[in-house]
Every structure is written in C-alpha cells, then in structure tokens.
C-alpha cells in the first residue's frame, strides 16, 4: 500500500487555509442573512412556537449541538471493540 501517507504531489483547494476560511466566513454570513430575513417574511405559522424569532435556525442549531453531545455520551455505554460480536 504505497499510496498511504500524505504526499505533497496533489494539492487540493482545501489545503489552502484561505479557502477554508472563505468557506467558513461565507457560512457565518449566510446564517446572519437568513436570520435577518426572518423578520421580513411572513411565515404562516401553524404553531405558536414558530412565531419565536429565527425559530428554525435556533432550533436546528441547538438541537444539532445537543445531538452531537448526547451521541458522545452514548459512546460511554454502547461502544465496544470492532470484533465484539465475532469473539
């Protein structure tokens, strides 16, 4: 497997930190944009909770963070060696 180990022959766009940062900041900017837009679009809400400002964004963001942290804790209980069932 001579292909293993980083080689410098192939440069990808994300090897350049500038591009990574560009992507990062454009994400931040889009988040800000859609958050602001929330105040200009009438949402036809079905539930009261939807009337909360930037509900979808906050709910999505917070729940995702919670998901990752919960899953991390879950590893304490459920994680075993790769060959657990084969032994």
């Amino acid at each position: 497997m001579s292909e293993h180990g980083p080689k410098d022959d192939v440069k990808g766009i994300f090897d350049n930190p500038r591009n990574v940062n560009l992507l990062k900041y454009s994400l931040y900017a889009s988040c800000l944009l859609v958050a602001i837009a929330d105040f200009f679009v009438d949402g036809h809400p079905y539930f009261d909770i939807e009337k909360f400002p930037v509900f979808y964004g906050l709910y999505g963001g917070i729940m995702c963070a919670a998901l990752v942290i919960a899953a991390k804790w879950m590893r304490i209980i459920v994680m075993r060696d790769e060959d657990y069932y084969d032994r």
Binding site: L27, Y28, V34, V54, Y56, G57, G60, G61, C64
Partner: peptide, 12 residues
C-alpha cells in the same frame, strides 16, 4: 435554509 445553515454552523 435557516434549519440547514444553522445546523451546519453547529457542526462547524
């Protein structure tokens, strides 16, 4: 878009 972008934000 809000849901997805903020989720991406959380991941980042």
């Amino acid at each position: 878009l809000q849901l997805l972008l903020f989720s991406a934000l959380a991941f980042t």
